[in-house]
Design a protein around this nucleic acid. Structure first.
Length: 207
DNA sequence: AACTCGGGGCA
DNA sequence: TGCCCAGAGTT
């Protein structure tokens, strides 16, 4: 399998690296990424605009009750868990890190609501620390294209980091997500429109 | 490994 | 009306 050919094709298909959650500072990116779990980026962007206007930092959100935060974010779904986690996370940021989002994977994952994928997003996008975030799209698309042969997201992450140059980890994350959302969808992938179908095994084999 | 959280967008 | 969404925590 020619990995480089697939990666070149992805870069060609998605030349400008699009980030659905384009947040400037680490705190906003962290909260937006926690909120994005199983929710669409449209839903998240709609909620975060007013949220960060009223409560711009960890200290402000740490003073809210989970019920108060629920009212701000209830339109995105899964809001009870997310409200509780975000308030607790904000309190931990204030108490342990002086309100600053930490920049190690271990410290990030220790925050409630933050798993490996969210931690990697913050590391790579907010702190420019090389990390390859694997979500459901990346996991599915990388397997279908034959970039990986993986049974869980951590395996996908490890295998992709071997194949892809470190400088491209963040870009590759976005290529694979965009491809997964637009073409290589979970249920009804549009293989006839896919510009990688000539070198993809998913069309001929059923994965 | 399976289950739960969930309102809103869209066909 | 039914299906699905930039995951994480619990059992």
């Amino acid at each position: 399998m020619n990995y480089q050919e697939i990666l070149d094709k992805l870069r060609e298909c998605y030349p400008e690296v699009k980030t659905a959650l384009s947040f400037q500072n680490p705190f906003e990116l962290l909260i937006a990424t926690i909120l994005s779990a199983q929710s669409t980026d449209k839903q998240v962007n709609k909620v975060t605009q007013s949220l960060f206007e009223k409560y711009p930092d960890a200290n402000a959100i740490s003073l809210l009750s989970p019920e108060e935060l629920e009212q701000e974010i209830k339109s995105i779904g899964l809001y009870k868990n997310k409200s509780k986690n975000i308030v607790t996370t904000s309190k931990m940021l204030v108490e342990k890190y002086n309100g600053i989002v930490p920049c190690t994977r271990e410290e990030l994952i220790a925050l409630p609501g933050v798993g490996r994928k969210t931690a990697n997003v913050v590391l790579s996008n907010a702190y420019n620390i090389p990390a390859l975030a694997v979500d459901t799209h990346v996991f599915r698309v990388a397997n279908r294209l034959g970039l990986t042969q993986s049974s869980n997201p951590l395996q996908t992450e490890e295998q992709l980091m071997v194949i892809i140059p470190e400088k491209d980890w963040s870009d590759a994350h976005h290529w694979l997500i965009w491809h997964g959302r637009i073409v290589c969808k979970a249920r009804r992938p549009e293989c006839q429109k896919c510009r990688l179908n000539h070198l993809c095994q998913y069309l001929n084999k059923s994965v």
